[in-house]
Amino acid sequence: MKISYVGNDAGWINYDKAIEVADLISNIRPTQDNYVNPDYYPPIELDLEIQAMYFMAMVAIDHRLNIPGHPFEATIDGKRYVGSDLLWRLGAEKLRDDASFFTPGRLAKLKPSDVKDWLGDVWDYGVRAFLLSDLGVKVASLFNNSALNALRSTGGRLLGPGGLIELMRNFTAYTDPVEKKTYLLAKFIHGRGIIKFTDVNNAQVAVDNHLTRIAIRLGLVELSQRFINMINNNISFTPNDDVNLRSLIRDSWKIVSMNSHVDAFSLDDYLWNLGRSTCIRDKPNCGKCQLRSACNAYRSGIFTNEHQFYSTFWY
């Protein structure tokens, strides 16, 4: 007998499916990255203050890079980079060329043209300039020009008064109700050892398109007919509908995390890589998928994609 519970307007979580997926994840035993690839991340010997500000700034603008009619891709040193990979590669290059770019004072003064010169013609470079400027202004005014002081003020806690989740709500870039960017930042700084969180059990996955697509295809979430119709007919979601869907999906991955005994940071790394390399939008490579035995889409041959919600800086 299938056990499930109603979540919200988006649909419900299939608890039996979550347990089935958790069993597979527990056998895979994914571990968390340490984020030291020099193509994307700061050198470990770099001043911690710059490292902290780099991660806060890059996560702040890590959202919606490819939209229809406006791809974000480039070849650098003979290698093709697309989307988030290109963003972080350009960030690492900027850090090497001019580390002072990632200081509160410099970020606070950024203009849209500065971001366009740096990233190229990314579709919403004006929004990204605002988010970086807002971050710089508030780190300077609220935390005495120190991103590291801001992060250390959490006492190594994700939740609770003064924890990271509460802290990051000061910054416009981190106001997603489903907290995708905040948990992505937490994952990075925990994995790098900049801040080691004492309540990792409270961590959540950073719900983006990849984690949404995988959850829907697996059958972790069973969507209401209205949401199914909107996805199948490429109807753009409202912000409220988007939040309801991603909240439901975040809860479903939490059940998987708890029952697999794999922390959310490690699970997020695994799922993000799976969504980019295997469970892709077009022509998913099911033969390489370690979760295919539990996947509804693999069994049915019907591969639903994530919902349409482009105009957002949340994720």
Rank of each mutant, 00 (worst) to 15 (best):
R169I: 09
I195K: 00
L148Y: 03
Y310V: 13
L131T: 06
H63M: 14
R106W: 11
V127T: 15
I28G: 04
M58R: 07
G219R: 00
K283D: 05
L184H: 12
D62F: 07
E166W: 06
V205E: 00
L267P: 04
I194T: 11
P68M: 15
A129Q: 02
V256M: 08
T198V: 12
N37M: 05
T154R: 00
G156W: 01
F102K: 10
L291K: 03
S113C: 13
L223D: 04
L151M: 09
R213N: 05
N229S: 13
R89S: 04
K138A: 07
V122R: 02
A74P: 01
R64Q: 13
K79G: 06
N240L: 10
L274Q: 10
R80D: 07
P177V: 05
S153W: 01
S84A: 14
L291E: 02
P43M: 02
S293N: 11
R106S: 14
V262K: 12
D16I: 15
H307C: 09
W272S: 06
N34Y: 03
A22K: 06
L164E: 04
N34R: 08
S113R: 12
D241S: 10
R96D: 14
T212Y: 00
I189A: 09
F143E: 00
I44L: 09
I195H: 01
P38V: 03
D77P: 02
G7A: 13
Y174C: 13
L86N: 06
A18W: 00
W123L: 14
A206N: 06
E49V: 00
M1H: 11
I235H: 00
S4A: 13
R96N: 14
